[in-house]
Amino acid sequence: MPHQCTGCGERFEDGSKEMLSGCPECGGNKFQFRPQGADVPEGPEEPKPTSEPLEPEPADDPQESSVAETVGRATTRVRDFVSGGDEPDPNAAWPDESDAAGNASDDGEIIDADARREAGTDTDTDAAEDAAQVNARSGLAAPEDVPDPDDATDASDEPPAAGGDPADASDGPPAADDDRVVSEPSDEDPDLAELREQLNDQFESIKIVEPGQYELNLMELYDREEYIIALQENGRYVIQVPDQWIGADVDDR
């Protein structure tokens, strides 16, 4: 039972795909990694473990916006910002807050939390927001940290480090945070395997690297019923299709 929703406490097996699109119970997209044999609380995640490195934080509102959640949302938002997605989709998972507050104040709230982490006990929202944004803008360039827009829903499943690291680069504590919150590398394996499978499926039987250079997918060539009898200069194929495919048409004529 390696993952647990920090929102409602729902548990997921390692490699579970359910959580990729958010917790089916509460819609939350923050999960805590629970190694085998670890002490697992029944209910929603107490802020304690994640707030450990962030001592000054819990004064806020422990039950509604645990640090893990807030940081997670900040991460998601910053990522969306970086990947050019302006749409408020990521907020959809948190209707209770984002709907009422609207985008602007939502931003403020999230960045606020992020910034306070960075600035220690600083509670000055505006100043903190600026600092966090500057950090986010300057530090988030690492390409591997930028998710595909298509994968926006999966983004939260990736290590919070992706969005948090650059911003956190200056302070130590969040590293410990990473260890605890959904950042196990194994967590990504199913995604990668899936992606690889997709790519393999997409790999056509003959790939034209450039005129005169070809890569061949032998299994695909072997598996397909139709048979490529000629390659055109423009990259098109001439294929011979099995009789059954055109049988009806031929008979109609």
Binding site: S205, I206, Y214, L216, L218, L221, Y227, I228, I229, L231
Partner: peptide, 8 residues
């Protein structure tokens, strides 16, 4: 390349 396709 066409030949490989044919062979397969």
């Amino acid at each position: 390349t066409e030949g490989v396709a044919e062979a397969m």
